[in-house]
Write a protein that binds this DNA or RNA. Structure first.
Lengths: 117, 117
DNA sequence: ACATAGTACCTTGCGGCGCAAGGAACCTGT
DNA sequence: ACAGGTTCCTTGCGCCGCAAGGTACTATGT
């Protein structure tokens, strides 16, 4: 089943390579735990994702040192693992912002969605 | 080697799912042949890609009926396969424009690269 | 005639991400 | 005890972009 053939795949493909930086951006505003991140990303329909996506993503971020984690008690339920941004993560996020704006503007020019008309 | 670890991978990941619509957008302006598309995409640094990426991509577009092709003589060199947009391709491009602007704005909000303010 | 360089097309194999599906563990209320 | 909510995580798959390699046609130089 070619990705190009079904509807949902388009948005999924767009999220690729962006989602992790959206997570870093959320964390730059303060630490969060996994399910909380799923919920906050879900507030933006275009960025809605699932735990099956997020947890491996968070593992990668931890492995490369862009986030650190700490376990904390939950008021109700199992303990939560809170993620917080490291300085390296903040640097990576800055770098992404630069790459993203370049990329975004290029796509806008080519497909004709530039907001300056 | 984790994608997140090396520099080039960022831009590559962003291109995912967008490149094919950039191609459609170029074709909406008139038919092109393969190498020509590589060159024109190369004009946008953020969209620069190679033939190893483009030819499989073009095959997919042809398979789903978003483009049709016709062979044409070249003034110097082997014959060229020209790609042109079908009505279905134009519809898909329109649909992408809508999805793209939604996605783009969501990312801008979350990572703080919104051009407002 | 032959080699070289330029043009143009295409294929193979790999790595990585996002996802669906499933599973494990902890707490609370009945 | 048990059901239901919360939270964490893993496995297997599909797909795309890429590097590398391969084929074929034309023009040019010797």
């Amino acid at each position: 089943m070619c990705r190009v053939e079904h509807q949902a795949g388009l948005a999924t493909a767009l999220r690729r390579g962006t989602l992790e930086f959206c997570v870093l951006a959320l964390l730059s505003d303060g630490e969060r735990y996994g399910v909380e991140l799923v919920r906050e990303l879900g507030a933006e329909i275009a960025l809605t994702t699932s735990e099956g996506t997020l947890y491996p993503l968070l593992s990668r971020l931890r492995r490369v040192g862009w986030v650190t984690t700490s376990w904390r008690e939950s008021p109700a339920g199992p303990p939560r693992r809170y993620y917080s941004l490291t300085p390296e993560g903040a640097t990576a996020l800055d770098h992404f912002r630069s790459e993203w704006t370049t990329f975004r503007d290029a796509v806008d020019r080519v497909v004709g969605t530039d907001r300056r008309s």
